[in-house]
Design a protein around this nucleic acid. Structure first.
Lengths: 162, 162
DNA sequence: GTCAGTGCAAACTTTTTGCAACTAC
DNA sequence: GTAGTTGCAAAAAGTTTGCACTGAC
């Protein structure tokens, strides 16, 4: 499915969602949905805000962004992550499921796919719970930080020996 | 292993960690470690702060709590979660691995264990990455919120039909 | 016309930072 | 004695809230 097709489809899904839940169909909401589906990968509210400002298509306030994104999450069109300080968001319709590898030292986030893992998680039986989505965060150190840390340890040992 | 044994062991691990990394062994740090290992389940900085105040054993500032907890995470004695608004922490030595089920409506967090899932995650091969720990968050709606939401939808449909 | 939704600014919460005082080494 | 730590208070960062105005229905 190409980008325009996806955008049309999610707009439809959103319209249905707004109808079903008795919300109004404002231009702000559609502009936000559209912008989000133009972004690849993660973004935070601030990034989205600047992006929409620069586009000059539609100016929306941060408050509206926060409000709308709650609806989009509820409509299953966006998912929310919480690594680092600010919440990160991501479009979720027609996107490959992926997992996240996070370096505890430098904070770098890498995505990876693993079908076995995915099916193991999806086949898990949950009691009294309607699954909507999931996030797997794998924490550790990237090779770069492992090396940096080893150097530091060696320095400390040298100091002690003096 | 009983609680006192665990506390002694983690104190040793922490001492080694502080030595290896050239940090000082302050009484504040050990008091914090001790308090954390008295808590079952999740806690946030504010809870830990009040807890330590009430104990009257040792008064530490929030700044020190933030500083120390970074060391404890690095020493693999504590893990950090980020659901909800504030960061949640949890002791991690000698604890069963568990996964988290989070209701997107009411925010309720339930823990569950699943050995198959655990081994699937732990056997995943990661390139250029030294795994330290991981968190699996499963989002969805708890049975209570599913029912509440259905009632709301029915109400909206009724309104439209009038 | 009505009320949900918006923008703005202020308030609030959580976390970080700068600095003087303290203390582990 | 020195430099890593602490406590405090101020600042920063992210998010929520109150209120007047707007526009979708």
């Amino acid at each position: 499915m190409d980008t325009q097709n996806v955008k049309d489809t999610v707009r439809q899904i959103f319209t249905e969602y707004l109808n079903t839940n008795g919300h109004r169909k404002t231009p702000e909401r559609y502009a936000i949905l559209d912008t989000i589906y133009s972004i690849d990968g993660h973004f935070d509210i601030d990034t989205l805000y600047s992006l929409m400002l620069n586009q000059e298509k539609f100016r929306v306030s941060r408050a509206t962004l926060y409000n709308t994104i709650i609806l989009l999450i509820d409509a299953r069109l966006v998912i929310k992550h919480q690594f680092g300080n600010s919440s990160q968001y991501e479009k979720s319709y027609n996107c490959n499921t992926h997992h996240h590898q996070i370096c505890t030292q430098c904070g770098k986030v890498t995505e990876f796919q693993n079908d076995e893992l995915q099916s193991a998680i999806e086949s898990t039986k949950l009691s009294r719970f309607q699954l909507s989505h999931y996030s797997l965060y794998i924490y550790g150190m990237c090779s770069k930080c492992v090396r940096a840390k080893n150097r530091k340890k060696i320095n400390n040992n040298n100091k002690k020996e003096k």
